[in-house]
């Protein structure tokens, strides 16, 4: 299990990185933590002849508070997300999710940008970004553009990221203080991808759900924003029947594969269970301010 040969580039700026990708076309791949790409290269399932290491671009490793939005650079690691006091205060679901990704060592290398950009349906952050209504900042030869996380994913490993583009940052609108949140992930063991997982962010007005967003991980070839399920819970007191209906609506949009984690049927049902549990936990947190 040895990667094939490649030329290594370590640009110091986004412009330089984009230039390198343009120069080498489809033979080039950007990478940051490398924990998705290097295993694929070791299996010779990926054989880029040029690797563009983004770790040298210091601008990409920052977390910025812009008031109603938090901007997280692409090479911010999961470990840095977990350590961030800013995120703990304003977007605690990021920490909750990051802690459920892989293991401590991998979290020191794995980045938010890599997790959302490579299009692996097993990754946890894409559904969370859809839940939060985040946008991705993509830099290319013709400048920068933004794409909503909810629009970004087309199929497994296929995204709106064009050849030559780099995802440089994620812009996350901050939910109101006192919001409820939960990332519920069923997995076989530490280090595994989700059998099914659900992200929920909601706000309460008294005992009524004022807003809600639900998204799902690893139960289709892309992350899924569960629009119908999200809509169903708004205006309710999140009684048992509503939770059940939301879970059913979420299940209806899933299309999981049978794999070592279970049959397609099981994984679809687990998507429902995770949605139900995440809703209850999120509402509880909103109520108690926990």
């Amino acid at each position: 299990m040895i990667p094939g040969p490649f030329v290594y580039h370590r640009p110091a700026s986004v412009g330089e990185a984009v230039g390198l990708l343009a120069a080498h076309g489809e033979d080039a791949r950007p990478f940051a933590g490398g924990h998705s790409l290097i295993p694929m290269m070791k299996l010779r399932m990926a054989a880029p002849s040029h690797l563009v290491d983004l770790a040298g671009i210091s601008d990409l490793a920052t977390i910025r508070d812009e008031g109603s939005t938090v901007v997280i650079g692409a090479t911010v690691t999961q470990a840095a997300l977990i350590r961030s006091d800013l995120l703990a205060a304003r977007l605690p679901i990021l920490r909750e999710t990051a802690l459920q990704i892989a293991d401590p060592q991998i979290r020191t290398k794995g980045t938010l940008g890599g997790n959302v950009a490579n299009g692996d349906p097993g990754n946890d952050m894409p559904a969370l970004m859809q839940c939060l209504g985040a946008t991705y900042v993509l830099a290319g030869p013709d400048g920068s553009r933004e794409v909503a996380a909810r629009d970004f994913y087309e199929a497994a490993y296929f995204t709106l990221l064009q050849p030559g583009e780099i995802l440089t940052a994620v812009r996350i609108p901050v939910p109101p203080a006192g919001h409820g949140y939960a990332y519920e992930k069923l997995k076989r063991k530490i280090g595994d991808y989700a059998t099914a997982a659900a992200a929920v962010v909601l706000t309460l007005d008294g005992s009524t759900v004022a807003s809600a967003a639900i998204a799902l991980t690893n139960v289709a070839s892309t992350p899924l924003f569960a629009e119908e399920a999200s809509r169903l819970v708004v205006g309710t007191s999140l009684d048992a029947a509503t939770v059940k209906a939301a879970a059913e609506a979420a299940k209806a949009i899933t299309d999981p594969a049978t794999d070592g984690r279970g049959t397609a049927e099981y994984r679809r049902e687990m998507a429902g269970v995770m949605v139900a549990r995440a809703l209850v936990k999120a509402a509880d947190r909103a109520r108690t301010g926990a």
């Binding site: 293991d103 063991k189 530490i190 070592g260």
Partner: peptide, 24 residues
């Protein structure tokens, strides 16, 4: 160690082959 009907060995890596961590 599982096989599909074509005799392809399934999950011959530590992602799928269950070796519990300290947590489990």
């Amino acid at each position: 160690i599982k096989y599909d009907e074509m005799g392809n060995v399934q999950g011959a890596s530590f992602m799928d082959f269950f070796l519990p961590t300290a947590v489990e």
